[in-house]
């Protein structure tokens, strides 16, 4: 997950076409608010953390530190669902990007 540098890629995209004036800043929301790429990076970090948590839960279950099958299962399912959601969000972003690129000028 570390290798995906969403931040740098999105910044590179921001430079294409539209000149960097105030209008592009408004898209990012209010002044001082988190930008889209920050939000995305943060979410990816959270998904990664969830997967690490799930791995820890599995290890604890295997070493007998916890006897709760359900907690382990919940952690693993949570990580899986979060990952799938991320996949779909990524698909939507790519789709939107392609839509914009196809637009006739």
């Amino acid at each position: 997950m570390k290798d995906i540098t969403v931040h740098s890629n999105l910044k590179a995209l921001g430079g294409v076409g539209v000149p960097a004036n105030q209008d592009t800043k408004k898209i990012g929301g209010e002044e001082g608010g988190a930008s889209f790429s920050d939000t995305l990076t943060e979410s990816l970090g959270k998904v990664n953390d969830l997967q690490k948590e799930a791995d820890m839960a599995i290890e604890d279950f295997a070493t007998g530190k916890t006897r709760n099958i359900h907690e382990t299962m919940i952690a693993v399912n949570k990580a899986d669902l979060a990952f799938r959601l991320t996949m779909q969000v990524r698909n939507k972003i790519v789709e939107a990007y392609q839509e914009v690129m196809r637009t006739q000028v």
Binding site: F61, M87, R90
Partner: peptide
């Protein structure tokens, strides 16, 4: 037997996460 089944379930769940990353394509 219960533990064996639980371990298999966990393994399959992890496998399915990787599988989703491999097979899911961005919709064209």
């Amino acid at each position: 037997q219960i533990m064996y089944t639980a371990f298999i379930q966990l393994m399959m769940k992890r496998g399915s996460t990787v599988r989703s990353a491999v097979t899911e394509l961005p919709q064209q």
